[in-house]
Amino acid sequence: MMAMPDPNDIKALLDWQAELGADEPLGEVPANRYVADPGHQKAEVAPQATQSAIATDPVSVAAEMARESASLEDLRQTMGEYRHCDLYKGARNLVFCDGQPQARVMILGEAPGREEDVQGKPFVGRAGQLLDKMLGAIGMDRASPDPQSAVYITNVLPWRPPQNREPTPDEMAMMLPFVKRHIELVDPDVLVLMGNVSCQAMLGRKGITRLRGNWQEVSGRPCLPMFHPAYLLRNPHAKREAWADLLELKARLLAE
């Protein structure tokens, strides 16, 4: 007869997994990502096909798929079918967008967090709540039906990185063609880059404390780098600069 496991041993194992960064279960049975799917029969692959797969450039594949997306719905579906970025394997949802597609302002964040991954929408956690208050202070609202006061929100990455780590350069490079196509389809008057990751993706530079508040140009449209709301939660003293950037954004919209 098999002995029952000691509850203390089980607790110790769970504590050990938590220390490694496992913050939530995704299923009752662990998935081994290093073996082939047992539900599919292994097929023989010709040498030419193997060489072609090895030579496939994920960024080129992303660029081709993005070009073929004629609408936002097409783009959402295409991104969901893209399988070269492994982040999708550990994510619950693809986080595509929120807000009004006809809005004059498009906000580009970094990557989904835990709450965003659960709900499938960008900026819905504590940082998102702060963002809503910031926008409300200048008369803007993601839920507004009026393009003049509405905003459209998305991220550089549509999937949550493990333990909310920063995206790698390879992950950003793979998603960049989709981001650029996303901007083309929405066609906003002004683009706001929230945080270092979005600045690195679109401007090729980091250092948000130097970049914030200084207008740039991305894809032929004005672009304003700003502190990410998550940064403001950790550094409340920077809210003064964030308020100045919001006023600058409002003034730009009124001038155009």
Rank of each mutant, 00 (worst) to 15 (best):
E24I: 01
A49V: 00
A46P: 01
A31Y: 07
P47G: 08
D37G: 01
A43V: 14
P30Q: 05
K42G: 03
T50M: 13
E24V: 03
T50S: 10
T50F: 14
Q48V: 01
S52N: 12
P38F: 09
V35A: 15
Q51S: 09
P30H: 11
A46W: 01
R33Q: 14
Y34W: 12
G39N: 11
Y34S: 07
G39M: 05
G27R: 10
P47I: 13
G39S: 10
E28R: 09
E44M: 13
P47S: 08
P38Y: 09
T50D: 05
P30E: 04
P47L: 09
A31P: 02
P25L: 09
G27E: 03
V35H: 14
P25A: 09
T50K: 12
Q48G: 02
A43H: 11
Q41N: 11
V45H: 00
Q41W: 14
P25T: 02
L26I: 15
N32I: 05
A43R: 10
A36Y: 04
A43P: 02
E28N: 11
G39Y: 01
R33T: 04
R33F: 14
V29N: 14
S52M: 05
Y34I: 00
A53L: 11
P25I: 03
P30V: 03
E28H: 10
G27P: 01
G39T: 07
E28F: 11
A43M: 14
S52C: 07
P25M: 04
G39P: 02
A49P: 01
L26K: 08
P47Y: 07
L26N: 10
N32L: 11
A31M: 09
A53Q: 08
P25N: 03
Y34D: 05
S52Q: 11
P38R: 12
Y34L: 04
P25K: 01
L26Q: 10
Q48W: 05
A36C: 13
A49F: 01
P47K: 06
P30C: 05
D37E: 01
E44G: 06
Q41H: 15
A43Q: 14
Q48S: 08
E28I: 13
Q51A: 10
P25Y: 09
H40G: 09
A53S: 10
E24K: 13
D37Y: 00
A36T: 12
G27D: 07
P25D: 11
A43Y: 09
A31C: 12
E24T: 10
L26W: 04
S52P: 00
